[in-house]
Design a protein around this nucleic acid. Sequence first.
DNA 1: TTTCTATTTAGAATAATTCTAAACTGTTGA
DNA 2: TCAACAGTTTAGAATTATTCTAAATAGAAA
Lengths: 137, 137
Amino acid sequence: MVKTDNGKAVERLRAAGLRPTRQRVELAGLLFKGAHRHITAESLHEEAVSLDLKISLATIYNTLHQFTHAGLLRQVIVDASRGYFDTNTGDHQHFFVEDEGRLIDIPGEAISVSGVPNPPSGMAVDRVDVVVRVRRG
Amino acid sequence: MVKTDNGKAVERLRAAGLRPTRQRVELAGLLFKGAHRHITAESLHEEAVSLDLKISLATIYNTLHQFTHAGLLRQVIVDASRGYFDTNTGDHQHFFVEDEGRLIDIPGEAISVSGVPNPPSGMAVDRVDVVVRVRRG
DNA sequence: TTTCTATTTAGAATAATTCTAAACTGTTGA
DNA sequence: TCAACAGTTTAGAATTATTCTAAATAGAAA
């Protein structure tokens, strides 16, 4: 019996407490197979469609959020009209190429933010996001 | 003849190359009269309505963008589903209180980012945005 | 005034995302 | 192996923020 090797994806989903359904396994396959990626619900859906994976857009949205809650993805907010997700959940920041809507990682070791004041009392820092907006020119 | 003093607003608009229409003058009055503010198209519209200013939501959107292009406002991207604008266009960053959708300024002198790598060739840095996400707890 | 163009506006249109309720499918226990 | 249940997927409707359109209005200049 010939099958795509999705054993890794299945394990990863189980470890995250997510039932390894066909759709989740296929998406995990796309997302976590090779190098880290930046995707959009639309872009991932188009990719799935082009590979003849049968996954609805609603499921893409559901899955992206579930993966994010499970810590498998991180959401990146750089554009008011489009939600990005990053398969790299480690400490790092981004360049955002405004004309192209493209993200580029900046390693966490490279960049550092200092002088962040104490948050208002009763609040705790969740995360510090740095976006370096760049343009052609 | 008793009139609201909008002389300042009118001058400011003229200086920015914007024709001082009633709507723009009234909005400039709201936005630039006192301390710096963080607003949303919706929140500004509600405020205008509550003060009996006759300004449509479409005009609020138009005006916010025109003010931004003219350098009177700065757009702040912190939330995928809502556009914020800041009357403080100077060098500074933000706390974002995620539960409340509220922004708090961090003075530019306080905070600093170091180690930003060179942007990809052919690209120039437009701006470096820092968002410190905080939560109750 | 008159005229000209920029501006405003109501309402339709768009785009991203979420919701709903019905159909489907992993998983578990017998 | 299989029944049964709870979790998942889905098509399509609904929602939300925002933009567009084309007609009406209002500054500015002469």
